[in-house]
Amino acid sequence: MYVSWRYRERDTVLQRFDPRSRIIFTICVLFSLVQFWDLRFILVFFVLGVVQLWSAQLTWAETKRFWSVLALVILTLSIFTSLTGGAGAAVYESYTPLRTGTLLFTGIPVAIAVSVEQVTFFVTQIVRLVTFGLFALPLPYTIHPARYGIAFRRLGVPDKFAFSTDLAFRFIPSLGQDFQMTLDAQRARGYEVERRGSGLISQIRNMVPLMIPFIVGSIVRSEALIDVLDMRGFGTRPRTWLEELRYERRDYLLLATSLLLLLISTVMNLLDVGNFWTPSFLLVDTI
């Protein structure tokens, strides 16, 4: 109903891996990816991500909400950082105007204020962020929700924190549901989110009817949760886990691949390979 994703048993190769090796693989890939700014290398990861996503056999209907949110975030982020040049400055130093020409009918020479580097950075950043998304997306759809707790526990996270990942699966959707209900209840009282009246203060004041019930509700909910955990003896002694995890041969293979990938990427980074790359045909064309 309100839950944005739902785990389905699909019997894919991806789902047969131990969640621990999946988590380690994803972490290794992400740490490798952040070391590159060269679009050509990033595309290698991109292809890898597409292959993984394809093997997860997810449907568009299931994932479209995730993608639309991601698209919004990526576009905003990329447009801001590329055009202001703020974040890009650390990655490239040269500045080559994209096109030069003369102002219409006057013959005054002008350069378009967008540089080759800015455009390339813009594209590279989008591909890079989409690739992050590609790797993050399949995880919640392909790891059985009941196995996060044990997976993190076996990865060395203490009992209490490990179990809280299990809890999150149950409670984050409930919080979303609570918020929706508050919004509905207040709208039925004539409340409108887009209220005329500008200014930060009045915007914040307009959020009060939503935020107070939501915050109070969350506190009440978490107090009730603490009672429930207490009454069932949570955290009083080392706990056991119903779920069982076992590394198979494919998991060892995946782990080895992950570590190798991270190693190669790090070495390349140390050798200064894979830094920001501007396609030469763009540079030739100008001036």
Binding site: A146, D166, F169, R239
Partner: peptide
């Protein structure tokens, strides 16, 4: 408000796990 796990068997197991 009293269900903490996302699957039935895990929910029943919760108290036992803690012990």
């Amino acid at each position: 408000k009293q269900i903490v796990a996302s699957y039935v068997a895990n929910e029943i197991a919760f108290g036992l796990e803690n012990l």
